[in-house]
Design a protein around this nucleic acid. Structure first.
Lengths: 217, 217
DNA sequence: CCCATGGCGTACCGTACGTTACGGTTCGGC
DNA sequence: GCCGAACCGTAACGTACGGTACGCCATGGG
């Protein structure tokens, strides 16, 4: 399984300057992909290579620090769980879907996932684990309480929150992420994202809404 | 959009020996990932580097040839479209889902997708396009006729075959592929694949079956 | 005023790897 | 039996890049 603690918040232990350096590395990562060089990072960040090595150890250290830094920035606020009727549940689900689609279609997410996937083969670092923790698993952690609350309120009907979440994940993401990662130009305007979020939520409610029965899962 | 002709069948133009070399490269790609060296391929294939360069031009040429070679091997037979009732349609869908899950969870598919994703950033070659053509788009080409036939037979109800396919794709794959690419150990036994295929088809039929209405897509 | 520290810029080293060149060997055709 | 082509094994070359060392400057405390 995945290592625990891969999503520790490093924003505390980082000085202002170090964060600026990591931001530069992040921008360069988006532009150049995995073939960015230490000299390029140093030049872009206006710092010396020796400083990079002193702060981050080696290239892999810099990369993981960059990924964790970006991860610590997208920590989103959870949904408030006060009122819960069908319309608020629907709104929450649509919100989650829309946010998720925006994230996975952003340039930085694509770049980060690319390098993480590339590094996942030879187990030198755990970029894949970091990205998973702050991507797919973070989404699950934030969404599952909403699903459970929906079940408590009698709006949803499912056996296992995990499988319900995974279905929602599939309905939202479909083929978007893999196509983007493989370089396909998927048109994702604000409008299409909104439409996809609505469609996915409706489909999810059709499958797991308490009114409809689908006991054969 | 993606380049046409990315899925030309190269198995004709390749001699026996060249296919053996590509097989060796493929195995090495699965083991080593993108950091395989030309010397390693030459040694594994018991051929000289000069031959590699004469046959495939350069490293990228060898990689694309390897990917295309593997792609030409998984060309699967289409489904026969004679009888078409609900049980045969269900069987076809389950078959597709199960096959697809087996493919994306195979070692070679994971390795190939990893290098293709890694190379998709810097547009040196078009590995991403090749993988997409022979993966996601090939699946769509093979599945869409079945969906259309199902609609003709009054078993399915959808507006656009493309969006219907994408929903099916999402219901089948969910988070499996991205988790595998990122290095997560997903347990995918024969039994779980069968169960997932059944669940995905049932959900798809619940959404797009002609008996049920979900006109708000 | 002086010195120590931290960081910038740059030159440098070692190595890994893509690419090329070359000598030796097999093999089909004459 | 001889020739050329194709190919194997390996040595060699060039380069790019990770990692390190060193000189210089700024700042801040004594």
């Amino acid at each position: 399984m995945l290592q625990a603690g891969a999503d520790i918040d490093r924003s505390e232990t980082l000085t202002e300057r170090q964060q600026a350096v990591l931001d530069a590395a992040l921008r360069l990562l988006v532009e150049e992909g995995d073939n960015l060089t230490m000299t390029a990072v140093a030049r872009r960040a206006s710092c010396s290579k020796e400083t990079l090595y002193k702060w981050f150890g080696d290239r892999d250290g810099l990369l993981t620090a960059t990924v964790q830094w970006q991860a610590s920035k997208v920590r989103v606020a959870a949904v408030d769980r006060e009122k819960l009727d069908l319309v608020s549940l629907t709104a929450s689900l649509e919100r989650f879907a829309s946010d998720w689609l925006k994230v996975i279609s952003s340039d930085t997410s694509i770049a980060l996932n690319r390098v993480a996937v590339g590094h996942a083969g030879s187990g030198k670092d755990d970029l894949g684990a970091v990205v998973l923790q702050n991507g797919r698993f973070a989404l699950a952690r934030r969404l599952k309480p909403v699903l459970e609350a929906g079940r408590q309120a009698g709006l949803l009907d499912f056996e296992d929150a995990e499988t319900a979440f995974r279905t929602f994940f599939g309905l939202v993401g479909r083929d978007v992420q893999i196509r983007l990662l493989l370089g396909d130009r998927v048109e994702l305007t604000e409008a299409t994202i909104g439409g996809d979020a609505r469609r996915a939520t409706q489909q999810f409610l059709a499958l797991f809404g308490a009114t409809n029965r689908l006991k054969s899962l």
